[in-house]
Amino acid sequence: MSIQIRSISPQDWPQIMAIQAECYHQLTPEPLSVMSNKAELAPDCCWVAEYQGRVRGYLLCHPWRANQPPSLSVTMTALAGAQEFYLHDLAVSAEVRGMGVGQRLLATALTFASNKGYQHAGLVAVQDAPTFWRKQGFVPSATAKSLAEYGEGAVYMRLSLTEPA
């Protein structure tokens, strides 16, 4: 069986929340209302990876202001600008790590963002993720926002989605 990448559907949330709880050990996991809020505001920008009939990974994205990551655990009432394609949360179950699930989800998101005309993708790398994101081409970038709520060692990172001239 292969890994299927598809848009999030309402029945996926219990599995998504279980993956979030499994993956985040240095942060308090965001509540379901905050997580599902991303998919409500930007349904075309949120995906799951399904393997053997179960959700094994997810990626929540949305348009946002460049260099100003959104606050954690806060429900958004509207999307703030469309200057950057913001990758809010990528998590993959340990059951499928090493199978390229994160890279497949990321490729789906970056293709979507490029096709929509975004010039940059941004994110805050937490826990031990900065190394993963560097391997994907993201580089640390300045932000005036405090990243304390994201945990020790959090790094704001960006990726250009346009080819250099």
Score class of each variant (00 low, 15 high):
137 G>D: 11
106 L>I: 05
107 A>W: 14
70 P>L: 01
70 P>V: 02
30 E>P: 03
31 P>C: 05
144 A>P: 10
122 G>D: 08
90 L>T: 13
140 P>W: 09
96 V>G: 03
23 C>K: 02
159 L>W: 00
119 Q>E: 14
61 C>E: 04
15 Q>H: 03
30 E>S: 04
68 Q>D: 11
13 W>M: 04
121 A>N: 07
135 K>Y: 08
136 Q>S: 04
163 E>M: 03
127 Q>T: 14
40 E>H: 15
75 T>L: 05
10 P>C: 09
142 A>R: 03
45 C>Y: 12
131 T>G: 05
165 A>S: 03
37 N>G: 05
141 S>L: 01
134 R>S: 15
83 Q>M: 15
69 P>Y: 13
11 Q>W: 06
33 S>I: 03
92 V>L: 11
133 W>R: 02
115 N>I: 00
68 Q>W: 14
8 I>W: 00
107 A>K: 05
98 G>E: 13
130 P>G: 02
141 S>H: 00
145 K>S: 04
74 V>A: 09
104 R>D: 02
86 Y>V: 12
20 Q>N: 05
25 H>N: 10
162 T>E: 12
125 A>I: 10
75 T>F: 10
109 A>Y: 03
1 M>F: 02
11 Q>G: 08
45 C>W: 11
2 S>M: 12
160 S>V: 07
126 V>Q: 00
49 A>K: 06
81 G>K: 11
35 M>W: 06
121 A>S: 05
20 Q>C: 11
100 G>S: 07
26 Q>N: 06
26 Q>S: 06
153 G>W: 04
9 S>T: 10
15 Q>G: 01
49 A>Y: 13
51 Y>E: 10
157 M>Q: 15
145 K>W: 01
57 G>K: 06
6 R>S: 05
19 I>F: 00
84 E>T: 08
